[in-house]
Design a protein around this nucleic acid. Structure first.
Ligand code: FES
Ligand code: FES
Lengths: 155, 155
DNA sequence: CCTATATAGGACTAGTTTAGTACTAGATTG
DNA sequence: CAATCTAGTACTAAACTAGTCCTATATAGG
């Protein structure tokens, strides 16, 4: 179904919260309350995000989390990678591709290009847009350009 | 990991085979042999493809499968839909979206747009390209347009 | 009419993945 | 030194996937 995991979804929500309060340090408990998510789950996701360098943390009393860098520098692709590892649409696209029928089918290569194209598109979407902080409605320039197919359209 | 299921991968391979022999009727066994896949699995996938109207079948002795319509009229999006149902990147994008935090998060909406954009891109990719039958290398016009970002690039 | 060859459909099982929870350890403040 | 945080890991339950198997039905040909 070409879906992302719930964890990744949660991660986006939490990152959006953090992006909305760039100067404050938020604890896992606070974020859980704000997001209406279970505390242990939130904690798990945040730990993962920390490990992948998307958030920075402070230990101890009065500790908490904050974004490791400005929201504009965090992309959808990075979030996906952090939670689910580098994406590969099909098995054959993985690192050690050992597809037995690769020589004859040629399909793998085609999917890989789809893969790459989607990935690059996701790299153009930042947390600012995902969090809806941009002031203007979310806008995926590249993808929309693709969809319009060159037709000029205003607003 | 944003991946498609093996079944969908198999489906693409099988459809590519059928596309390569548009005038012949191929049995599940023949396709299995050509693709180096297990016969029961191939059969299962073909049945699914038939149910979703991507291939037509002939029963009985000397029966078999063929494409229901020209390869150029079968898109990657249709194949994905056939095997996995309409794609929804996140839970909230599903038919009965009952996300408890939808009002406050806004993230769901953003992902939905990503979802839609990817989907439309997949609709521009036909089986001709996936099967590598086009003569020229696979070309995803819309997606590449998106990636170039308006920069002119030759070949 | 009977048999061999195909597809159609569904049920079933094993395996893998995901989601969620719990527990232990370490850091910081006051 | 006690309270409040995060860090890391391990574990369990549930969901999904992949693959197989069984039964029914349709067709061609002897
Ligand atoms: S299915 Fe792996 S390369 Fe074609
Ligand atoms: S997570 Fe469902 S709408 Fe935000």
């Amino acid at each position: 179904m070409l879906r992302i995991s719930k964890m990744t979804d949660y991660a986006t929500v939490l990152l959006a919260r953090l992006a909305a309060a760039p100067d404050r340090q938020l604890t896992a408990t606070q974020l859980a309350a704000q997001s209406h998510l279970a505390a242990p789950t939130v904690s798990k996701v945040l730990k993962q995000l920390h490990r992948r360098g998307l958030v920075s943390s402070t230990l101890g009393l009065r500790g908490g989390y904050r974004l490791a860098r400005p929201a504009a520098e965090i992309t959808a692709a990075q979030i996906l990678d952090a939670l689910e590892g580098p994406m590969a649409l099909i098995e054959c696209a993985r690192a050690t591709h050992q597809c037995s029928i690769e020589s004859t089918c040629g399909v793998g290569r085609a999917w890989q290009r789809v893969n790459l194209a989607i990935r690059r598109s996701l790299q153009e979407i930042t947390l600012v847009e995902l969090a809806g902080l941009g002031g203007e409605p979310v806008r995926f320039a590249a993808l929309e350009r693709a969809l319009r197919g060159g037709r000029a359209e205003r607003t």
